[in-house]
Simulated assay, not measured.
Amino acid sequence: MLNHQLDRLFHALADPTRRAVVERLCRGPATVSELKEPFAMSLPAVVQHLKVLEEAGLVTTSKQGRTRTCQIAPQALRTAEGWLTTQRTGWERRLDRLGTFLEET
């Protein structure tokens, strides 16, 4: 289950537009129209990016009247961060062992 979740997270974050949306939402909630402003793309294209982010669990949306507001879902970012930390820790251990080996030889 975790691998599937990570696949969706990293797939969503692989796109520069979606990363920019996540960065913007880390500063606070925004409407879909506000998220569209910096991009030269149609509103439906932005909505499609938001759908991918939402399916990955990175973004949640709520609708009030005709306005859809998006916000970041911090738990998904923590999941990705935890996986990256585990990978980094493993590589740091390997590099430490290599450094020790090289010092001894």
Rank of each mutant, 00 (worst) to 15 (best):
G65R: 04
A12Y: 00
L43H: 14
R18F: 05
P44C: 08
M1Y: 02
L102G: 05
E37Y: 03
A30H: 14
V47E: 15
H49K: 11
E104H: 13
R93C: 09
R18I: 09
R93I: 13
S62R: 15
Q64C: 03
C70T: 02
F39A: 07
L84V: 09
H11G: 04
H4G: 08
L84P: 01
A45R: 12
G57K: 02
M1G: 07
T100S: 12
T86W: 11
C70I: 00
E103W: 07
M41D: 14
I72A: 07
E37S: 06
K36Y: 02
W83I: 01
T89S: 10
M1W: 02
E92D: 14
H11Y: 12
E23F: 13
Q5I: 06
F101G: 00
T89A: 14
D7P: 00
V59Q: 03
F10N: 01
L102R: 08
Q75R: 14
R8N: 06
R27F: 07
P16C: 08
T61D: 05
N3C: 02
K51N: 05
V22Q: 08
T69I: 12
L58P: 09
A80D: 01
Q64A: 11
T105H: 09
T79C: 05
C70S: 02
L43F: 11
E34S: 07
A14C: 06
R94N: 04
E55A: 12
L6D: 05
R19M: 10
V46Y: 13
E103Y: 07
R78V: 09
P29G: 00
P16Y: 08
L77E: 02
N3Q: 14
G28K: 04
L2D: 14
V52C: 06
R24W: 03
E23M: 10
S33R: 14
